[in-house]
């Protein structure tokens, strides 16, 4: 099983390193042909606006969208969540429009307000989580399940084969979110 990591920009290395530790083969995705034969794809943290320019101009947007709509499992963290969201409440662009969620960009504020804390997740227990200028989920579609939350705020959500986090599980050394994602990918194969 090979998992792709979108590698146009962002913390690609951190995701690859977690997947390595879980014994999974990875492939950096820069071009449409890199999507062939993948069992899942990770959309890393980064700057969503910059990532989108690179996806859009590189001819990747169409192939990504097609693969995801065809059922390719995906994990999006932070900027990755923004790329997957159907709606962005405070921004004029829409990106892949895959998951039925509305997100607010930079909802946790500027970098001086970025933080780390423990969150609780269904089935995974309590997890350390790093929130960096994080997007928050402001609307959940009917088919979207909340797996992790911080008070009333959903921070880890799943819709079918797609999983999205407001935080960065790849920065803490804890592999449980990626492990959960790999289980999703295995079931889909």
């Amino acid at each position: 099983m090979t998992i792709g990591v979108l590698a146009v920009q962002g913390d690609v290395r951190e995701h690859v390193s977690v997947l390595d530790r879980l014994g999974t083969e990875t492939r950096r995705v820069l071009r449409p042909e890199h999507l062939e034969g993948l069992s899942g794809i990770v959309f890393p943290g980064g700057e969503s606006t910059a990532m989108w320019r690179l996806i859009d101009h590189g001819g990747l947007a169409g192939s990504l969208s097609e693969a995801l709509r065809g059922g390719l499992p995906a994990l999006g963290t932070c900027a990755g969540m923004i790329l997957l969201a159907r709606e962005i409440t405070n921004w004029h662009e829409r990106y892949l429009e895959i998951m039925d969620i509305a997100v607010e960009r930079n909802a946790s504020g500027r970098q001086v307000d970025s933080f780390e804390r423990v969150i609780s997740c269904d089935g995974l227990g309590t997890l350390p989580a790093v929130f960096i200028r994080a997007p928050y989920v402001r609307r959940l579609g009917a088919g979207v399940k909340v797996l992790g939350s911080m008070g009333d705020l959903p921070v880890l959500v799943r819709e079918g084969n797609w999983l999205a986090a407001s935080f960065h599980p790849e920065l803490t050394g804890d592999t449980r979110v990626h492990g959960y994602f790999l289980d999703m990918c295995r079931k889909e194969r």
């Binding site: 590698a7 146009v8 920009q9 913390d11 290395r13 943290g45 980064g46 910059a50 970025s114 790093v130």
Partner: peptide, 9 residues
């Protein structure tokens, strides 16, 4: 962690 997000940019 924030600096990691700039990579490739």
């Amino acid at each position: 962690g924030f600096s990691e997000m700039f990579k490739g940019g």
